[in-house]
Design a protein around this nucleic acid. Structure first.
Lengths: 224, 224
DNA sequence: TGAATAGTGTCTTTCAGACAATATGCC
DNA sequence: GGCATATTGTCTGAAAGACACTATTCA
């Protein structure tokens, strides 16, 4: 139980890591970058970087997100802070993790890429990951499901106007489970968070009603 | 948008702050310490301290908790990490916040106190707080309610054996709201997380059945 | 027997979940 | 007409919520 007297001067480093989710090809995908340097050179990792001295954690997360995907103004939420002293072999690094949800239409991958190789992976076919990033990703997946159940974050994966079938699709992908069309619609409409936006044209089948998320809906609304 | 080249060497400091809740005199209370030094000298603050280089965040939180209250082995959960660059006038301090729930029977206040003046405050009569601690406390209160609704943390505020009326009492205190005795008991027993422990003796009224929380109950169990 | 707290049951309403047939638009 | 997708209603079972009287122990 001896006390180190150096603790006031020996500071840990602080990084942010962002688990970036999107939906592509009817699958839930996460963006990973291939590490060009040691440690874990050649392994896949969650994108991230060190926090600059003058920027907030959210700003740091936003900056990294934009560097990787070229998008801004998406859902970004803090997940958890991991601080095991041995999680990084280079030294003490505490990482504050964030989750981002990006509509795949808007992504320009490698927009401002600093030569890092980035790729989307299905969350059901993940490679082995660097550091404790597997633990972080597993945690993010749990939280993502939780967020889908209890909040309206799912709509940040959709364009402004969408048919209900698309909402159902992303819920089915995230939960890896089918829902009954009638019950799903009944529940969703009963929440009173959607506004009718007219009927979609130019489809080769019966055209659906489009909806949008009402303004000023707080984040916490029970969905499922 | 200029980039500071020093960011790799100029590190933020990292602290942990612990919001310690207990129930005393039928009120929800939180432990605050009076700051003996600048900044905010004389103001009340949430207890905390800097993370030592070799210890995990949980260990740091535990250490601070034990220094303040003399207790270990209580519920301790991470809340959120606050990192606004201007939250501490002394410089860049990122704080990882935790919430602890302590059974008031077990508390020895000032057990290992480092001359800090500590006091329990009702959450409904709070003084003005140092730093952004009011924000942290408000957040902790929200999370506490959420935890009470969806998990079994409430039982960490009770001794091993307890009557159901005591469980109901702490729920009523936390939610500041009365519940129906019959419905509360029906719901609680239907969860199948309690074990009968025989009838309490030596009370000057009808003696209640005592219960204990079953072993191996995971944390997430919906309560209310 | 009075004070204090424990224990108990029914009815109503709400919500989740199971389930299948018809409608529309385009080719 | 055939294809693709959208739209619609009813029944059942489970759970939540409202509600009041009796039981036990001790002083």
């Amino acid at each position: 139980m001896k006390e180190k007297s150096i603790h006031k001067f020996d500071k840990p480093s602080v990084s942010v890591d962002i688990v970036i989710f999107t939906i592509q090809d009817n699958e839930l995908k996460v963006l990973l970058v291939n590490r060009g340097i040691e440690p874990f050179k050649g392994k896949w990792a969650i994108p991230g970087g060190f926090v600059r001295i003058g920027e907030s954690l959210e700003d740091a997360a936003m900056r990294e997100l934009e560097e990787e995907t070229g998008v801004k103004d998406v859902y970004l939420g803090q997940l958890y802070t991991f601080g095991n002293p041995k999680r990084d072999p280079r030294g003490r690094v505490i990482t504050v993790t964030y989750m981002a949800l990006v509509n795949s239409d808007r992504i320009k991958l490698h927009a401002a890429s600093d030569a890092s190789e980035a790729e989307w992976f299905s969350v059901r076919k993940l490679p082995s990951l660097a550091f404790d990033h597997r633990k972080i990703l597993d945690y993010a997946l749990k939280r993502l499901k939780w967020k889908f159940e209890y909040t309206t974050v799912a709509f940040s994966l959709l364009p402004k106007k969408f048919p209900i079938s698309h909402v159902q699709r992303i819920y089915e992908i995230v939960f890896n489970k089918k829902f009954d069309k009638r019950n799903f619609k009944k529940k969703l409409l009963s929440l009173n968070i959607l506004k009718e936006e007219g009927i979609k044209k130019d489809v080769s089948h019966r055209p659906p009603m489009l909806y949008s998320l009402k303004k000023n809906i707080g984040e916490i609304v029970e969905i499922l």
